[in-house]
Write a protein that binds this DNA or RNA. Structure first.
Length: 507
DNA sequence: TTCCGACAGTGGGGTCGCAAT
DNA sequence: ATTGCGACCCCACTATCGGAA
């Protein structure tokens, strides 16, 4: 397949807002792909090439000195070969090797093709069609049921492989894609509710479990062979030997477990997320050990459990993991759920996850069978600047720089403001328009990226908490900040202080 | 006809390994 | 030894389409 065919189809997809039209265009494209081209095309469309990490980012691409051709000659196979070479470039001289590969590829591409290739390598194609829409297109092109394609994609964790089976195999081949120990599946995700009681209303009788502030893990075991995967199915087995050792001691031969891992301090309290990540991200074992907690069991000794209700899965989980089980209890009583939530918070954890007891394990979906509940804090902060948005926010002042009041001048001028983070979340189109009109009237100066304001506007911000920051002058940064609304009734002198926010660290 | 589930997009914080400086 | 980049952990929220009710 010529690259231009793919690029033209992507342009057609981007040009329409109709999902049905996107699906139609993608289905026609997939129908033209040869069997061995299918995973390449799927990878490029998802902006997630099948080679995995390429070592190509925004900086590297924008520093290239590239020229293009007017004549379109590249095929998707040509592109795949270059991506292969990029993925394998490592060691001394790899940066210049990548530069050579990219410069050469750019010179063989037309301007449109290079634009497409740049975006797909950066992971941001923005055609409005990712895994969800592409999945429907695969079903359309192959004549298979969307539900069958979806299930195969979730259980194989690989849309490219699924597309090959759907488009070139039989219906039985597609139906035959199942759980396989050693091949990670997309993890089940959770919706959000404000309180444990509200969560219970969505789920009915539920298992209410601690929510820990660590990293999701999926562990596969066959005998002594153990593999550990992240939420995004990256294999991190070599980074967590202590978890491998623990899973080897469990009383079963074959297992697929779902859980969370984090580091503890001496008294058994959770370490901050940053410290867990420090250990989690490192190859070599450090003195800080990671501990697993398991909350679901997808397979045990030849028996698939994903279509069994949670109640059954938990029974089996209890039997298999014993002390390594996530704390929790089964209830339909809102008071009991609230009690468990308070207990989790008192122990230093994030909150709870409320899980419908009769629900199956729906891999890769964010349904309402699992509902997470975390406390939300709100503070009044001052807008120091706003950055120009991108994509659909192009031309709008979007991302806010947020400051806390420093009444004593501990971090600068008395009565001044200390930047503690940014946010672009929670803004409606109307609010974006208002910011874009209003902020220039308060402008002090600007750069190509941002407009800086007189510190007058007060905005109410919700956060999950604060964390230590090596970058911000107050030594802390907001975690998951989002806009709740502007507070025209307040002046900047009424804003919350940096001392108030810093105090959150020590609790 | 209205409602709502699913999806894509818009970016935030930090930490690591690695190659270049 | 330090710096910058890319990858990848955690994540909330709004707008939109189109099928369900």
């Amino acid at each position: 397949m010529k690259l231009s065919v793919l690029v033209d189809a992507a342009a057609e997809v981007a040009a329409t807002s109709s999902r049905l039209a996107k699906i139609d265009a993608l289905a026609r494209l997939l129908g033209q792909a040869a069997g061995d081209e299918i995973p390449i095309v799927v990878g490029l469309l998802l902006a997630s090439p099948r080679q995995g990490r390429l070592g190509v980012g925004w900086r590297g691409l924008s520093s290239l000195d590239v020229g293009h051709t007017d004549e379109s000659t590249l095929t998707v196979d040509d592109v795949d070969q270059v991506l292969e070479a990029l993925a394998h470039a490592s060691g001394a001289g790899s940066v210049s090797r990548r530069t050579d590969l990219l410069t050469s590829l750019a010179s063989r591409a037309t301007a449109d093709e290079w634009e497409f290739l740049s975006r797909t390598m950066l992971g941001e194609l923005r055609t409005g069609a990712l895994a969800g829409v592409l999945l429907d297109a695969i079903a359309r092109a192959s004549g298979r049921a969307a539900a069958s394609v979806r299930r195969a994609a979730m259980l194989s964790g690989d849309l490219g492989e699924t597309a090959v089976i759907a488009l070139t195999g039989t219906e039985e081949d597609l139906e035959g894609v199942g759980l396989r120990v050693g091949r990670p599946v997309l993890p089940m995700l959770a919706a959000t509710a404000a309180t444990p009681s509200a969560a219970l209303e969505l789920t009915g009788r539920a298992s209410v479990e601690y929510k820990l502030d660590g990293a999701r893990i999926q562990v596969h075991r066959t005998g002594d062979e153990v593999s550990v995967y992240t939420r995004n199915l990256a294999d991190i087995t070599h980074r967590v030997p202590e978890i491998v050792d623990i899973v080897r001691t469990l009383p079963a031969h074959d297992l697929i477990l779902d859980g969370e891992t984090l580091a503890l301090d001496e008294d058994g309290g959770p370490r901050p997320f940053q410290e867990t990540m420090s250990r989690f991200g490192a190859d070599a074992a450090r003195d800080l050990a990671l501990r697993p907690w398991f909350f679901d069991l997808l397979h045990v000794d030849g028996r698939d459990l994903i279509d069994e209700p949670l109640s059954t899965r938990l029974q089996e989980l209890d039997r298999v993991v014993g002390p390594w089980r996530m704390p929790g209890s089964v209830t339909e009583d809102p008071d009991a759920a609230e009690d468990l939530s308070r207990e989790a918070l008192a122990a230093g954890h994030e909150g709870v996850v409320v899980k419908a007891l009769d629900s199956t394990y729906t891999a890769g979906r964010r349904g309402k069978s699992w509902v997470k509940v975390k406390p939300v804090l709100t503070y009044d902060l001052v807008v120091l600047a706003a950055e120009w948005g991108s994509g659909r926010r192009n031309g709008m002042l979007s991302n806010l720089h947020l400051g806390a009041l420093d009444p004593t001048g501990e971090f600068g001028d008395p009565g001044g403001f200390v930047m503690v983070g940014k946010t672009f979340k929670g803004l409606t189109d109307e609010l974006l328009r208002w910011q874009t009109e209003t902020f220039p009237t308060l402008e002090t100066h600007r750069t190509p990226y941002a407009v800086f304001l007189q510190p007058e506007l007060v905005v109410e911000i919700a956060i999950d908490g604060v964390q230590r920051s090596p970058r911000y002058p107050g030594g802390i940064a907001l975690r998951f900040a989002r806009v709740k609304g502007y507070r025209p009734d307040k002046s900047a002198a009424d804003a919350d202080t940096i001392q108030t926010l810093r105090a959150l660290l020590r609790e």
